[in-house]
Simulated assay, not measured.
Amino acid sequence: MDYTREELMHIVSGQMPERRWGHTLGVMESAVALARRYGEDPQRADLAALLHDVAKYWPIEQQEAVIRDHQLNMELLDYDKQLLHAEVGAYVAQQDYGVEDTSVIDAIRYHTSGRVGMTKLDKIICLADYIEPGRDFPGVDRIRELAEHSLEEALVAGLDSTISFLIEKQKRIFPTTVLARNDLILQIRSK
């Protein structure tokens, strides 16, 4: 990697409003705690959490251009613009900040949508984004409680919350999110 943790913190914090930086710090804290609880490398969780929203406040046009110019997941362009920053953030982490660990890059890429076959690190970053201490939405306390004993059950509750919100707002649901939820349910049932 081309940067120290402190350098990355300075760079990332400068690309977002102070409130979002507070969110990022909360995701980092939650990700490290989940990593320790579930046997994942806390340093990898910390790095993925630090970079998970690196492109969140880039102009939408710039995010779309990165996806088009580098032939990333073009399907995202047809869905809610809130999904773009994860794909762009993964690209930026690798290309601009020298992150070589593909599991960290994937955890950034899938933190908003999930995916079938989520790795433990994917689950941790996605879940940490839901439950960080600054989050306050209906059902978050239940998701936090579920996270005490099951990444999968907590993530299903988080994805259910997201899907319900999108349905209520009459927005399209990214198919990967539905597939991720179904896969997590199968994982829970097979235990």
Rank of each mutant, 00 (worst) to 15 (best):
A48Y: 11
P42E: 00
R20F: 10
V32N: 01
R44I: 00
A35Q: 04
G14M: 07
M16D: 07
A35I: 09
V12K: 03
L47Y: 07
H23P: 01
Q43Y: 12
I11E: 09
R20A: 14
E29D: 14
W21M: 11
H52T: 05
L51C: 07
G39V: 12
R44S: 12
S30R: 11
W21F: 12
S13C: 12
E29L: 10
G26F: 06
V27D: 09
E18K: 13
D46I: 02
H52R: 01
R20V: 15
M16C: 08
A45R: 00
D41N: 15
G39T: 08
G26D: 08
A45H: 06
L34H: 01
M28R: 12
Y38N: 05
W21K: 03
G22A: 09
H10E: 15
V27G: 05
L34C: 01
Q15R: 15
G14D: 14
D46P: 01
G14I: 04
G14V: 05
Y38S: 00
V32P: 04
L34V: 00
D46W: 14
A48R: 10
G22N: 14
E29I: 00
R37G: 01
V12E: 06
R37I: 06
V27Q: 08
A48N: 06
I11W: 09
D41R: 02
S30Y: 00
A49T: 03
R36V: 13
A33I: 10
P17V: 03
L51D: 10
Y38A: 05
L34R: 04
M28F: 06
R37L: 11
L34F: 11
A45D: 05
H10M: 12
A31H: 01
Q43G: 00
V32T: 11
L51R: 05
R19Q: 14
P17I: 09
S30P: 03
A48I: 08
R37F: 01
H52L: 09
G26E: 04
T24A: 13
L25H: 04
Q15V: 00
L25G: 01
E18H: 12
